[in-house]
Amino acid sequence: MFIAYLMYKKSWIVLIGLLLLLTNALIQLDSGIRVEPHSLIYLNSLFLIITLSFFIWRYNKETAYYKSLRTLSDDVGEGWFEDVPKPHSSFPDPMVYTLLQNIHQHYQNKRREEQSSQLMEHTDLASWVHEMKTPLTAMKITIDAHRSNELAQRLNASWLRMHLLIDQQLYISRLANLDSDLLPEKLEVKDLLREEIRELSTWCMEKNISIDLTANTVSAVYTDKKWCRFVIRQFLTNAIKYSPTNGKLFIHMGLHENESVIVTIKDEGPGIQAHDLPRIFDKGFTGENGRIQNSATGMGLYLAKEICKKLHVRLEVDSAVGEGTSISMVFTSDNPFEMLRRTLL
């Protein structure tokens, strides 16, 4: 940094060097000035030592504030401005401090505006979802009241898909506050699966899809019922959506390594392209199958992934084109929920 400082002060160094040369030239050319050669060497040496000492002193003084800022820049956090040191010199450090203060204030104002806007959007979205649930509930009551009517029953599957999309939007609006909404308890995954299969039975019957549910062991886990059911619902709806008519879903529960409960949902759909597989959990990504279906939002798997992070559930995906897709939920035995349960026993 000292070399950079000298380069920055090169005009001063050139000026001092020229003045020294001019002084030496005057001493040598002016006959009225008599200086012994050893005295001239002494004078030049003393001048250079004083100049170098001056530059070192000014370097330490002028760069002290910037060194502290450089140290701060290596670890910038949310409260970075609170760590910015107050300027000691009168110029130009106060100008730098004022600039950083204005940038920080502008950033804070911008952030408050964005948070307020996001909060308003989430509030409007949640309000809209709740408003939509009222007519959907009325439609469901009407459909259930006319079970013998073929037209009403044909509308049942369409109503279910609308209900799932509205429900998905509701969970999107709640995702930011997921941590405060978790209520872990000991649950049987088999029961959660059966409840979701029952909810989606109308859609399965419309496509004549059968479900093969097998379990080799007890499937008790410690997790949140509402959010876990939503994740299972996303995987089941995806499997049903991409399964062919008269197809079959395979759901298996068993023990994974380290006695972790694993739930695998496999469909007979078109499968996922190898280049799409690493991105299926990205927000808004639909892939080739989604474009063909023209009904994918790219949000279902993203939400499932984000929720699974909070539930400490590991996801594993296996797919091959033309052979279907298999998604596994691994409820690890060493997650914080399970450890908390063990401490309460």
Score class of each variant (00 low, 15 high):
Glu150Ala: 12
Tyr171Phe: 14
Asn102Asp: 12
Arg111Pro: 00
Arg111Asn: 07
Thr123Cys: 00
Gln153Ile: 05
Leu183Tyr: 04
Gln101Val: 02
Leu175Asp: 01
Gly79Arg: 14
Arg112Glu: 06
Asn60Gly: 03
Arg111Trp: 02
Thr63His: 01
Asp93Ala: 15
Ile143Asn: 00
Trp159Arg: 11
Ala126Ile: 09
Leu125Gly: 01
Gly77Glu: 11
Leu155Phe: 13
Leu69Ile: 12
Ala64Phe: 03
Glu114Gln: 11
Ser116Lys: 12
Glu131Gln: 15
Trp57Ala: 15
Ser180Ile: 11
Glu78Ser: 10
Leu100Gly: 06
Phe81Ile: 10
Leu151Val: 13
Arg58Ala: 12
Pro135Val: 08
Asp179Phe: 03
Thr71Leu: 13
Trp128Tyr: 01
Asp179His: 10
His122Asp: 03
Met120Val: 07
His122Gln: 07
Glu82Ile: 08
Glu78Asp: 09
Glu121Pro: 00
Gln115Pro: 01
Trp128Ala: 09
Ala145Val: 06
Asp181Ala: 15
Asp167Tyr: 01
Leu69Asp: 00
Leu170Asn: 13
Arg161Asp: 04
Gln108Arg: 08
Trp80Met: 04
Ala176Lys: 14
Asp167Ile: 02
Lys110Val: 00
Ile103His: 05
Ala138Glu: 11
Glu114Trp: 02
Leu69Val: 06
Gln108Met: 04
Asp167Ala: 04
Trp80Gly: 00
Lys190His: 05
Ala138Tyr: 07
Arg161Lys: 15
His146Gln: 13
Leu151Ala: 09
Thr98Arg: 15
Arg154Gln: 15
Leu136Met: 06
Ser158Phe: 09
Pro94Ser: 12
Ile143Trp: 00
Pro87Ile: 09
Tyr97Glu: 08
Ala152Tyr: 14
Lys86Val: 11
Arg112Ser: 05
Phe81Cys: 05
Lys186Ala: 12
Met95Asn: 04
Ser158Trp: 04
Gln169Tyr: 06
Met162Asp: 10
Leu187Ile: 14
Leu187Thr: 04
Asn102Trp: 07
Gly77Phe: 01
His122Ala: 05
Glu185Tyr: 02
Pro184Trp: 01
Asn60Lys: 15
Leu69Cys: 01
Lys67Val: 03
Lys67Ile: 12
Thr71Met: 08
Val76Leu: 12
Gln108Glu: 04
Asn156Trp: 02
